[in-house]
Computed example of a mutant assay.
Amino acid sequence: MANNEKILQLLKTKGQQTSQQLADVLELTMMGARKHLLNLAEQGLVVSGTDHPEAAIANSRGRPQQYWRLTKAGHQYFPDRHADVSLQLIDGVRQLFGAAGLEQLIVQREQQQQLHYRQKLSNFGDLAAKVQQLAEIRQQEGYLAEAYLLDNGLGDNSLPEIGAPDGSWVLVEHHCPICAAATLCQNFCRSELQLFRACVEGLATVERTEHLLSAGSRCAYLFSPVSLGN
């Protein structure tokens, strides 16, 4: 993957970053990272500014830091899969067979996914292994997914006091490659949640804690282990 693509992916998954932060991750000099950023800016994919919370702190101490973020075009660099065709098909099914017919189609897709995912997860016994493998499957499908153990110091702190039990995992999806279809019919989102629940049945409960289509910046799912007494 070229450095320009790596920068776009880092800004998509990590949010606003300074030139130095990007340089450290990519093992470049700051000038090298800045050269790539300026090239992306010329393409209209990124823009810099000082409206990051940390920039305000820096401003109180002296010169504010410049933070780089994706533009709308930058976000669209990660496109929906066959979005136009998907929307046409969904609308066609709804017109021909009504809402019930569309729901049957979604249920069939969910069942097919469950079979596929369960086969992929069959060699993974515990919750940690299953969630990490789920993240890998979703990453391969274009969701820019990652999984982390809640409060293990490795993930972000965007899930506040939610009272999750010890051993809970979080699956984060920074991009939704079926977003256009899900926007038209949010039963796709319900189906995704049911899919995850089926994959860890008996091991954990699953709740969506952040939703891209409900003013969230991504989708996040909390996997809470089921106690032995339940």
Rank of each mutant, 00 (worst) to 15 (best):
M1K: 12
N3A: 10
N4R: 15
I7S: 02
I7F: 05
L8F: 09
Q9W: 11
L10V: 10
L11V: 05
K12Y: 05
T13C: 07
T13D: 02
T13I: 14
K14D: 06
Q16W: 08
Q16Y: 03
T18Q: 06
Q21F: 02
D24H: 11
L26N: 04
T29H: 04
T29D: 07
M31E: 10
G32T: 04
L37R: 04
L37A: 02
L38R: 12
L38W: 09
L40N: 03
A41G: 07
E42D: 15
Q43D: 15
L45W: 05
V47I: 15
V47T: 14
V47H: 04
T50W: 06
T50Q: 12
D51Q: 15
P53A: 03
P53V: 04
P53D: 02
A56Y: 12
I57H: 02
I57R: 06
N59M: 12
G62C: 11
P64G: 06
Q66N: 09
L70D: 01
K72V: 08
G74P: 03
H75G: 03
H75S: 01
Q76C: 01
Q76I: 04
P79T: 08
D80V: 04
H82N: 13
A83D: 07
V85T: 11
V85Y: 06
L87S: 03
I90T: 07
D91S: 13
G92P: 00
V93E: 01
Q95A: 12
F97T: 10
G98M: 11
G98K: 13
A99G: 00
A100Q: 12
R109W: 10
R109S: 10
R109G: 05
Q112D: 12
Q112W: 08
Q114W: 07
L121I: 10
S122W: 10
S122Y: 09
N123D: 13
F124W: 11
G125Y: 10
L127M: 11
A128W: 04
Q132D: 14
Q132N: 15
L134Y: 01
A135Q: 05
A135M: 07
A135W: 05
Q139D: 12
Q139N: 12
Q140R: 15
Q140D: 10
G142Y: 06
G142L: 02
A145V: 10
A145P: 01
E146Q: 11
E146F: 11
A147I: 14
A147K: 07
A147W: 06
Y148M: 03
Y148H: 13
Y148Q: 04
L149G: 01
L150T: 02
N152F: 06
G153I: 11
G153Y: 07
D156E: 04
D156G: 13
N157W: 05
S158M: 06
S158R: 09
P160N: 11
P160K: 06
I162G: 00
A164R: 03
A164E: 06
D166A: 14
V170Q: 01
H174I: 03
C176R: 00
T183K: 14
T183P: 00
L184I: 04
C189M: 07
C189Q: 01
E192Q: 14
Q194W: 08
L195A: 07
L195V: 12
F196C: 01
R197W: 10
R197D: 01
V200C: 00
E207M: 09
E207I: 14
T209W: 00
H211D: 06
L213V: 03
S214G: 02
A215N: 11
G216M: 09
G216N: 05
R218V: 02
A220S: 15
A220P: 01
A220V: 01
Y221M: 03
L222I: 09
S224E: 12
S227C: 07
L228K: 14
G229L: 12
